[in-house]
Simulated scan of single mutants.
Amino acid sequence: MTTSPDTRPLLAHSDTYVGLALVLTGGIAAWLASGFDAYSRTYPLVLGCLLAILGAVLILRVVIGTTTHVSFATPAQVTGAASATILLWIAALTQGLGYLLPTFLMQCAFLWLCGVRAPVKLVLIAALVAGISYLAFIEGLGVRLPRTLAPWLL
């Protein structure tokens, strides 16, 4: 992976498309959430708006030139590895391996794909993301998980 200052036009910058995807996804989620009842609307509406705002900020950073372009040597391989990681995570969840371990391993894989090579940093960030997502979604919001093979597999 190489990082370099980017002088490419707006439509040639990868962050433009990531930003557009976030704006589109967040906008659609917020629009769909606006049709929910008052009790169910808040979380998806706020999350959708937040995604759309972050996408717009990303595009704005490209426009004003304060972002760098990250270029992977083989984008197809990175895309394939990320897709395989997500499929393995889904399989682990549905096969009863719990939430925390598969999510931790998925985060490790994503961080590795994004260029994090320091083992301590990689493990700490992955554990933090897995732990916070567990607390937010499973404990805080009560998202139900598939059955686990053993009760200690959270």
Rank of each mutant, 00 (worst) to 15 (best):
V123Y: 07
I86Q: 00
T16H: 04
V116N: 06
S83E: 00
W89G: 02
L141C: 11
G55Y: 07
L11Q: 02
R41S: 12
V23Q: 07
L50T: 15
L51H: 04
L93Q: 13
L11G: 01
L47D: 06
C114W: 04
L50F: 15
M106W: 11
G27Q: 07
F104E: 09
P102W: 09
V23K: 04
S4G: 10
T148H: 05
A30R: 03
M1F: 09
A136D: 04
S83G: 08
G26A: 05
R117Y: 02
G65S: 06
S4F: 13
P119A: 14
V46L: 15
L93Y: 12
Q95W: 12
A118Y: 09
Y39R: 15
G80M: 03
T3N: 10
V46R: 11
A81I: 00
L88T: 07
T66P: 00
G19R: 02
T16L: 06
S71Q: 13
L101F: 07
W89Y: 14
L154E: 11
A33Q: 12
P119H: 12
T2I: 13
I59C: 02
R144G: 12
S83W: 02
L60H: 03
L135G: 07
T25I: 04
P44G: 13
V129C: 09
V23N: 08
F137H: 06
P75Q: 09
W152C: 02
A127G: 06
A109W: 03
P5V: 09
L113C: 00
Y17R: 06
L20Y: 05
H13M: 05
V62Y: 01
T68D: 14
L20N: 02
L45G: 08
A84Y: 01
A136E: 01
D15F: 08
